[in-house]
Design a protein around this nucleic acid. Structure first.
Lengths: 200, 200
DNA sequence: TGGGTCATGTAACCTGTTACATGATTAG
DNA sequence: CTAATCATGTAACAGGTTACATGACCCA
């Protein structure tokens, strides 16, 4: 997958490993990440596969660099990938995994986690988005039709964040109901963990 | 992460590797997956870490089994994990990665992908959910306070799917606008890839 | 003189996927 | 008779993370 992401980036203009890293960091970070260690490794195997080619460029005042270009075979591979398996796949969500087991903690503590989660917005606001993605905006001027796709990914981020916040609100509501139930039921203010021990 | 998921499952009752696999397959599949190969490997390392212990149980008419129980150290580890790093983290979304590069394909083709994506619901409907999660419902009867957390994860799945469908609708709308713009603009019906070649 | 940017990578490790391998019992 | 369920794993590979290592230039 990362190979194809890199391929896509190089397809819109030759790039160094370093430049690829900056695009991941500044523009794709809300749906994909990549460390330089992984990028340089993938570039090597992609060259062996014949998808990209390398040119050494000597520089003065700056370290020399290796610029990568896409080959015809690489472009074909990119198109094949774009047309393949475009159906929703299972996603991995660490916070949901925790949620599933949160019954081990006192309800009050769980509520606090949802509150913190709700207030921690990952997605930058409109203003920051613009400056962080200056690179993308520049491209958008020259290829407005390609910028549309980039905007679609940003909109996904926004919608996801909004949904996540609504979900947190719902969770907090449900947990408060549970808390009142437990309080009203036995007036013992016992955390779930303690209750379980008793039950055994 | 998987280690802690397994730990959580064993904490609510001793389990074999096989049983752990079935829970992942039937109840956690919308936010986490695990193959038996991985499960048995993790169980081995978890035993070495002292988080779980193993008992061999001979059976007649069925293959013998290895039943795993959580140790006090394991339960502590579970609590530590539950309290750690509970903030939204970057997620990886393969379809968003593709979306980002979809300008390489004709607009019409992209629209078709979003339509297919929209109509492919991963999340089972209420009826199937109930039968697939019979195990969970059984637990819910004995520990209604724990069932709440399980319901929260299901609600996330529902909200996510709804959001995804809305996003697809939005994308299709934007792409249709783009299509009309391109059609109206030069009346050449050129795919983006061909246009790019011309521009160079 | 200290931190940021540009620029390259290696090594070890951890996690996840795919493919393979075995074999008895039970229900249709 | 055949497919599903119960039950165990190994081996090889692919993909991702963490830590380390180097070094010049520029700006404050």
């Amino acid at each position: 997958m990362l190979k194809h992401g890199i391929l896509g980036l190089i397809s819109s203009g030759d790039k160094t490993g370093y430049e690829i890293m900056t695009v991941f960091r500044d523009s794709l970070n809300h749906f994909w990440t990549a460390q330089t260690s992984q990028i340089y490794r993938e570039l090597q195997t992609m060259e062996k596969l014949g998808w990209i080619s390398q040119t050494h460029v000597a520089q003065t005042g700056k370290p020399d660099k290796n610029v990568f270009s896409i080959t015809p075979a690489g472009h074909e591979e990119l198109l094949t990938w774009l047309r393949q398996d475009n159906l929703p796949a299972g996603y991995r969500n660490p916070f949901l995994l925790k949620t599933f087991f949160m019954g081990e903690l006192p309800v009050q503590e769980s509520i606090a986690f949802f509150q913190a989660f709700q207030n921690a917005a990952v997605f930058p606001d409109e203003g920051k988005q613009v400056s962080a993605n200056a690179e993308m905006y520049k491209q958008a001027i020259h290829h407005p039709e390609k910028a549309v796709y980039w905007k679609l990914t940003i909109e996904f981020g926004r919608m996801y964040e909004k949904m996540q916040q609504e979900w947190c609100k719902y969770c907090i509501g449900e947990l408060e109901k549970l808390q009142h139930m437990l309080d009203g039921g036995n007036h013992q203010h016992m955390p779930a963990a303690a209750k379980e021990e008793e039950a055994q």
